[in-house]
């Protein structure tokens, strides 16, 4: 599940990417590169490789962050998202619902400039979403 939203302050596109399949970081990388159909070592390959690192290595995993550091300080994951991360209420509600089903919840912001609006969501969905249409398990 990928949740797109715009920050109220600057209208910047941000995404929270909820993964349900238990995959390692390396497996996620291989899956993204395979889906992208890019030639090894090419510019496009490095673009996708960097995108993977931006999302799954450098972005904050909200679920892990809450579980490891903030589960005592905040009464619930909902509270943590609202008060610490200051996410919009409608986004928080969706994430709180998805908490138990998700392996990780990556808060991806300040991404590539072309990852905006519908195009950005579709781009990420094709590469990152669990079990996109047509893909065999």
């Amino acid at each position: 599940m990928i949740i797109p939203f715009k920050t109220s302050e600057h209208g910047q596109d941000e995404y929270i990417i909820c993964l349900r399949s238990p995959m390692t970081v390396a497996e996620l990388r291989e899956r993204m590169l395979q889906r992208a159909k890019v030639s090894q070592g090419s510019y496009a390959y490095q673009l996708i490789d960097n995108l993977h690192a931006q999302i799954f290595i450098r972005s904050l995993d909200l679920k892990a962050d809450y579980a490891i550091y903030f589960a005592r300080e905040y009464a619930s994951f909902f509270d943590y998202l609202r008060r610490r991360e200051r996410l919009p209420l409608e986004i928080v509600a969706r994430l709180a619902e998805a908490f138990d089903m998700s392996i990780g919840m990556y808060y991806y912001k300040l991404g590539y400039a072309f990852l905006t609006d519908t195009y950005g969501l579709e781009f990420l969905t094709r590469l990152v979403e669990d079990m996109p249409q047509g893909e065999l398990s």
Binding site: R35, A36, K37, V38, S42, A44, I48, F123, R126, L127
Partner: peptide, 16 residues
């Protein structure tokens, strides 16, 4: 597209 490293049926080909 070949120079940039994508196939014509790549899901990211439209970017290039």
């Amino acid at each position: 597209l070949e120079l940039m490293g994508v196939t014509s049926d790549s899901p990211i080909a439209d970017l290039f």
